[in-house]
Structure formats: C-alpha cells, structure tokens
Design a protein around this nucleic acid. Sequence first.
DNA 1: TCCGATGTACGATCTAGTTAGTTAACACAA
DNA 2: TTGTGTTAACTAACTAGATCGTACATCGGA
Lengths: 213, 213
Amino acid sequence: MAAPSADAERQRDKDRTRADILDVATREFADKGYTGARVDEIAERTSTTKRMIYYYFGGKEQLYIAVLERAYLAIRALEAELDVEHLEPEDAIRRLAELTFDHHEAHPDFIRLVSIENIHRAEHIARSEVLAGLANPALDCLTQILERGRAAGRFRTDVDPLDVHIAISSFCVFRLANRHTFAAIFGRDMLDPARREHYRRMLGDMLIDYLTS
Amino acid sequence: MAAPSADAERQRDKDRTRADILDVATREFADKGYTGARVDEIAERTSTTKRMIYYYFGGKEQLYIAVLERAYLAIRALEAELDVEHLEPEDAIRRLAELTFDHHEAHPDFIRLVSIENIHRAEHIARSEVLAGLANPALDCLTQILERGRAAGRFRTDVDPLDVHIAISSFCVFRLANRHTFAAIFGRDMLDPARREHYRRMLGDMLIDYLTS
DNA sequence: TCCGATGTACGATCTAGTTAGTTAACACAA
DNA sequence: TTGTGTTAACTAACTAGATCGTACATCGGA
C-alpha cells in the first residue's frame, strides 16, 4: 500500500468532520425542527465549533439542506439495490412495499425530516440542486412490476405507478409520522413490535386485493 | 326578545375576542409551527393586543393548546353527525372514508397542526385535559359498520376497526401532509382537482377490496 | 372606592451569524 | 538549512436583532 499523501489524509479528516457535523445536525433538526434546532446546540455536540459549521456549510439553512440531501440519497441508494425481476408480480409488490415499510421504521429521523420539510412547504428541497432532479429507482421498478402484472392478466389495468406509490408511502409514513397523536388519542402504539408483522402483512394484502380486483 | 343584560353582552364580546385570537393563532401556528409562530405576529393581526392574549390565554403554549382543542373538537362534531345506519356496509365504509377525505381536504390547517403536534411528540395534546379523554364517534361508527358487514358474511372477520381507521387516515392525511415534498420530488400535485375524484374512489375501492376479500 | 379589563413600554434572554485574530503546513528563495 | 511569505484551517468572544413575557399605569363601570 502506498503511503497516503498528506493531502489525502487532510481530505479524509475534513470528510470525517463534515460527516460528524451532519450526524449531529440530522438528529438535532429531526428532533426539534428547522426553527427549533439550535446551531449552538449542534456545535456543542460536535467535535468542532460553531464557527467551523459556518466555515464548512455556510449557514443554518445550507446545513439543513445538506442533511436533507444525505438522508434522501441514502434511501435512493437502498431502492436502487431492489431486485425483484425474478419474483411473481404479487410477490414483487409485497417485496417493494416491505422495503419501504422496513426502511421507514428503521429511519424515524428521515420521516421526521420529511414531515418538517412539508411544514416548510418543501422550500429547502426546491432550493437543493441535488434533490431537485433526483431519479427515483423505486418508481421505475414499480412501473415494471405493474406492467408485468398487467401483461399476465393478473393486475387491473387502470392503475398508475405513482398512485400505488402513494398507497404504500401513505401507510408506511403515517405509521411513523403520526404515531404520537395517534397514541395520545387512541391509546395504541402503531410501532408496537407485537403488531409489526400484522401491519406489514396488512399493507401487502391491501395492495394485492386492490391490484387484483 | 328580552334586552340583553350588560353582563351577557360583555361575555359575548369576550367570546368574540377569544374566537378572533384563536382564528389568527390557528393560521399562524399552522403556517409556521409552534416554534416558528410569533406571539407578536398573532397580536398584530388581531383586533386586540399581545397583552390581551396573555390575559386571556396565559401564554404561547396555552394559546397553542387552545388552538389544538378547538380544531379537534370541530372534526369530532362533524363525525358525530355521521349517519350511516341506513346504508349497506360497503356504502357506509365509503361514506365514512369520504367524510375524512373531504374534511381533511377542506381543513389543511388542521392537518398541518397535527403534523406539527407530532413533531412535538404530542406533548401538548397530552397536556390538554380536553383532548386527553376525547371520545371518538367515528370509531364507534366504524365498529358498528364492520360488525354489520361481518354479520352479513360480506366482510372478512379479522379486521380491527382501529386498523381500518389507520388505513383511511393514512391515505387522507398523506395526501395533504406530504403534498409539498411529493410535488417537489415527483412533480405531481396530489391536490389537483382533476384527480380528486380518482383518489376519492381509489380509497373506497381499496378499502372494500380489502374488507371483502 | 374597588376591580376587572386594557394600553404602553420595557427587559431578560436567546440566537444566527461575524469579527478579528491564531495556528500550522507548505512553497520557495537565499 | 533556514528565513519568509502565503494560505487554509481553526478559535474565542462578540453583536445586532429578535422574542417571550411583564411591570406599571390607566380606564371605566358598579
């Protein structure tokens, strides 16, 4: 192995610091919202100082956008790995729905960021060059599955991929995004592990019942 | 008509002022979130002063809780009017789903308040004596419909009313709560009037397909 | 005179962002 | 090798403005 150049080493240090800041910032923004989040607070929990956050990112808003970008890129990367070509259309739909179900459950911070961003009318996403034109692998995948199901005469012909995506997302997102008011009002924790499998199957059943009706 | 007593008149004035403040506060909180909302801003748009907001409500948090209480009571009142006893179970389900669909669409501020409250982990709802133990007419109604459908052998027997409520709410809430990020990423406005009927029917179809499968 | 209702102005605190300066690594000429 | 200038990386302390809440005075009806 060649000895790392000093430049490369410095670059890695920088990247580490940036990633460290983004980790802490993600938690803070997801926790308190954009307005509620405090730059001082983020700085304190980082291995660096507030001045450096401004040095690296420019300001609170750019930091927040960087947090959003990283979070979206992560789920897109996951979706890109989806391989359902070999599955029957019904199973492929279930697989896709379960991927969303599992990802959202495993990344509550991401869901919170999305909620927060919606409160702000997606103005920061709109301002992000990275996110504005981000391809959507899951949607292409969904389109293919529906096409196969239709071709086999098993799926109804009047469904739009984006609408199926809405059906999947709404269920998976609601379970996380609204769990607190739901629990406060109905006394049920939608994230109760004991009901997890029930909800996972219910989502798949609903989709298949609808698509094959 | 008896001449109104001076006391009664003063009471009405007070109520009007309170309602005025709540109207403005609802818009401000729904618009900017709890942390982003400004008491000065609310006061400015009211027919009264900041001093009076504190006099009437006590503080920013209590005002916010009062806003939440009024919003929740309104939808509960609407649900209580629901009369689906005379409908076939399938139609009753559709009717109930459409009530939620229509209400949410007509009250985007309510949906935004719910999102905001979830970001705050429902801590204010928990602190409200009014909302803590609020009965839920729609859920009772839903329970009865499912019971009738089961008794008639038309609905599957393993469905929980609260789960059906989740299915309905998730779709209706997502359409409003996530419309901005959705539009930013997929370029589709889920509130486009041209697609409204499509979504309304799709929700009903999904529910019936699932319940009767 | 009493007391609830209301107006005005202020203060204590918080917070995003900046100013002014330091440190450290490096390039290069003497 | 050493001195010197340059630049990126970094620090600590500060500021300007915002924001919730209040102290204090006043008004008006009973």
